[in-house]
Amino acid sequence: MSSLDLSNLELGSEEAEYSSVGFHYIHRAQAGRIVAVAEAFREAGYHLEMLTAEDRRTDLEAMRLVYTFSRLDQLDRHMVTVDLAPEIPGAQAPSLAGIYPAANWYEREVFDMYGIRFDGHPDLRRILLPDDVEFHALLKDFGRIEDAPDEGAANK
């Protein structure tokens, strides 16, 4: 295990105020470098706490992936965000399943909910929704409550 070395990885890093946001650093990474970033964290003894995505096509013109790396022996949480192309289908990122087996199911869930594909994932298929549906549920233009047939009083 070595100490964390994030140089030469084209990261835009910022320190964050832990007591207000809950993590210590936030890094902006390029999609092509995320594997090297994950390897650096793995070398330094961090585990992958969470992997999720956000649909920011309207305000940031990107589909955003969010990774959280953390330690068990001391409090040190790093959040890494990767911005991808704002197209579904089309947005894709390299898979971390070879480095962190935890990423296997997280990436399947991101694919299921957002449609982002992961290159190199051993088994990319849907995990929560039925296998034969054709939508990606957490995209902002799918299934808004305003579009639902109105039963009862509207409250928005």
């Binding site: 909910m113 849907r126 995990i127 929560l128 929704l129 039925p130 549920a137 957490l138 902002k140 299934g143 808004r144 409550i145």
Partner: peptide, 14 residues
């Protein structure tokens, strides 16, 4: 898994 999926994260956005 997925047999008990109730879309809590989608509800959170709505």
């Amino acid at each position: 898994i997925g047999y008990a999926h109730r879309a809590h994260e989608k509800m959170a956005e709505n």
